[in-house]
Design a protein around this nucleic acid. Structure first.
Lengths: 140, 140
DNA sequence: TTTAATTCGGACTGATTACTCTGCTTTTGT
DNA sequence: ACAAAAGCAGAGTAATCAGTCCGAATTAAA
């Protein structure tokens, strides 16, 4: 089944949302995340490491180590995460995969697709991680 | 790179559009399609066979054999082809892959994504193969 | 009736994605 | 100092997707 984002990207989003939820509880171990999200510990671990490299997530080793958000949830959009994991290919290439299709010689759906694609992008850019937090006020 | 539709689906769309273009030239061989679209003959062949099974494309064997559209291009939408090859997963599942997300307990983007997804679907459903034909009138 | 040109079916191969394993390093509590 | 608990890195494995190959069945023309 073809899906908009890669599995890894979906897990990254879920992981980030989870970290935001537990934001005030300090470091969260990959083990705990994995259990609560029912994902493989090794895989979510690797995925979060990608986000650590990009400065989106903080990590610390050792006995009390784990992961935490590097930015305020209000300053972190879903698109930020998607771009790191999957890149922006989804928002760029021709929907029909037509090799000739581009802004200069667009295919029949190109013009109609553009606004939809842009709206999707905007929505993901405007939706912050904070909006997923259950019932907290602004910042802690 | 993650993309909306599978490669096979993209080829199917390109193949159908090509068949529509050559509609008045009788059967078109997989070999010719492959050459003109710069796709592997074997692969486009297999792909079109899937569409034959669903009654979207006609095929005939033998010396003058080849493929042709089974329906009028005006009666064939892009969505028809997409559904056969990729199914409707893209239009159904949660964008974020959240396991809990559904119409009963939607995630934060679910509500906003719905209209976009529906608009995309509508656009693909309303765009017929005929719209791609260069400069022909209605039906021959 | 033979031959050439085609689709068709199934098995096969290669590439990419998804995930796992193992061992190492770091850090903290005892 | 030591042991336990965590992340990290790289190699390895499994599954799916993309594409190939080959031989059989079909059909039309020579």
């Amino acid at each position: 089944m073809t899906v908009l984002f890669s599995r890894k990207c979906e897990y990254a989003l879920q992981g980030i949302l989870y970290l935001a939820e537990k934001q005030d509880q300090g470091n969260i171990s990959a083990d705990q995340i994995a259990k609560d999200l029912s994902i493989s510990k090794d895989f979510i671990s690797k995925t979060l490491q990608s986000l650590v490299k990009e400065g989106i997530v903080l990590s610390s080793r050792g006995k009390t180590g784990g992961f935490a958000l590097a930015r305020a949830p209000e300053e972190l959009s879903l698109l930020d995460i998607i771009l790191v994991i999957d890149g922006n290919g989804v928002f760029e290439s021709c929907v029909l995969g037509l090799p000739t299709c581009g802004s200069d010689s667009p295919c029949s759906v190109h013009e109609q697709w553009g606004p939809l694609r842009e709206a999707s992008r905007q929505m993901l850019a405007n939706t912050t991680v904070a909006q997923f937090k259950p019932t907290n006020e602004t910042d802690k």
